[in-house]
Amino acid sequence: MAGPLQGLKVVDLSRVLAGRCVARTLADLGAEVIKVEPPRPDVSRFAFPNTDGMSGYYAQQNIAQRAMSALI
């Protein structure tokens, strides 16, 4: 089912909870969200109990998002 934001592209540069919640909500509403991380991976990938090197928090907040690494 297409959401009301279908066709909208969003670049997520956030690093903390509030930004991730907004990006997740936009993705849930149908926007294409592209998460850009610094060359050193996002600290939330490892900050909480994890499985196979990725925390459940990170996976849950970034579901339905494409990711890329910035070279800055």
Rank of each mutant, 00 (worst) to 15 (best):
S44P: 00
S69G: 13
K35P: 11
L8E: 03
K35N: 14
E32N: 07
G7H: 03
Q6H: 15
S55I: 04
K35E: 13
L13S: 08
F48M: 00
G7Y: 03
M1S: 07
Q6K: 12
N50V: 05
V36Y: 03
A64M: 14
I34H: 12
L26P: 03
N50I: 09
V33Q: 07
A70F: 10
G19K: 07
D52N: 08
Q6V: 09
E32F: 05
L29C: 06
F46E: 08
P49S: 02
C21K: 09
A67W: 06
V36T: 04
A59W: 03
N50E: 11
M68H: 01
G30S: 03
A47N: 08
A64Y: 14
V11C: 13
V16M: 13
P38E: 06
E37P: 00
Q6S: 15
A18W: 11
M54A: 10
L29Q: 07
A18S: 13
I34L: 15
A67T: 14
L29E: 03
Y57L: 07
L17Y: 09
G30R: 00
Q61Y: 10
L26R: 03
S69L: 13
Y57E: 03
M54Q: 07
A47S: 14
C21Q: 09
A18C: 11
K35Y: 12
P38K: 04
N62T: 11
P39F: 01
E32R: 09
R24A: 13
T51L: 10
N50S: 12
Y57K: 04
